[in-house]
């Protein structure tokens, strides 16, 4: 699983959802969490963090946002060789097949459907970790 020092970027236009995700991450032991309120704000932050040598190691983004949607932020990250391997999870109120397929096609690491609790997010993060680090030894429980 991702170490507790993992640097997260949470992108959502609703402060409440950012608070909920931050609360859930804290419950899971992650405290290095920064926030952006839409894709347009997030992209320069992702670039600046990388240039400063402290890149985000996990991006969690809402899908449905004004300005720049989560799916477009995902596509922008995947198109940039600097961020294309950064784990990227989409949070969405959509659980419909066409959206899931679009996200998968764009290269999303995983997606979580709102509303969700800490156990659901933890399970998704474990899947993302296994996908991005297939050779990592599973931690004995």
């Amino acid at each position: 699983m991702f170490p507790n020092t993992t640097k997260f970027l949470v992108v959502d236009d609703f402060a409440t959802m950012r608070k909920i995700i931050k609360k859930v991450l804290t419950e899971l032991g992650y405290t290095n969490v920064e926030e952006a309120d839409d894709g347009k704000t997030a992209l320069p932050m992702i670039q600046a963090a990388h240039d400063a040598g402290k890149p985000y190691e996990f991006i969690i983004s809402d899908w449905n946002m004004p300005g720049m949607q989560g799916i477009d932020l995902l596509k922008a990250c995947k198109a940039d060789p600097r961020f294309k391997n950064t784990p990227f999870m989409l949070v969405t109120a959509e659980s419909e097949q066409k959206h899931i397929l679009e996200a998968a096609k764009a290269g999303v690491s995983d997606y979580v459907v709102k509303p969700f609790n800490s156990q659901t997010l933890k399970g998704k993060m474990e899947r993302v970790y296994a996908k991005h680090y297939p050779n990592a030894q599973p931690k004995a429980s």
Binding site: T16, M17, N64, A93
Partner: peptide, 11 residues
């Protein structure tokens, strides 16, 4: 309230 409306409608 906005986010809850979003989630309830989405669901």
């Amino acid at each position: 309230v906005g986010e809850m409306t979003n989630m309830i409608y989405g669901s």
